[in-house]
């Protein structure tokens, strides 16, 4: 089993990469909206909103339960 510092040290770069990919997706969406002059479909907007809520759940320092469980339940709504 890893110690708390080991958990952070072991997975920091990988998590940094994953968060950058999500940020790039959000930037890509904004750029597409700007290019096309229109927003996404209702379904696309719903998915995007779920992603935003998911990020908040993942970043919650004191969740009521496991974050992964909450996220999987959230993703099941779209």
């Amino acid at each position: 089993m890893l110690t708390p510092p080991q958990v952070v040290d072991t997975y920091f770069l990988e998590s940094r990469h994953q968060i950058l990919e999500i940020a790039a997706l959000m930037d890509r969406y904004d750029a597409a909206v700007e290019r096309s002059g229109a927003g996404g479909s209702d379904a696309a907007e719903r998915k995007l909103e779920v992603l935003r809520r998911a990020l908040a759940i993942a970043a919650d320092p004191r969740p009521a339960g496991e974050r992964t469980v909450a996220l999987l339940e959230l993703f099941a709504t779209v």
Binding site: H17, L20, A24
Partner: peptide, 9 residues
Amino acid sequence: PITKCSPKR
């Protein structure tokens, strides 16, 4: 893979 730029970015 993780430390610099990714294909999508």
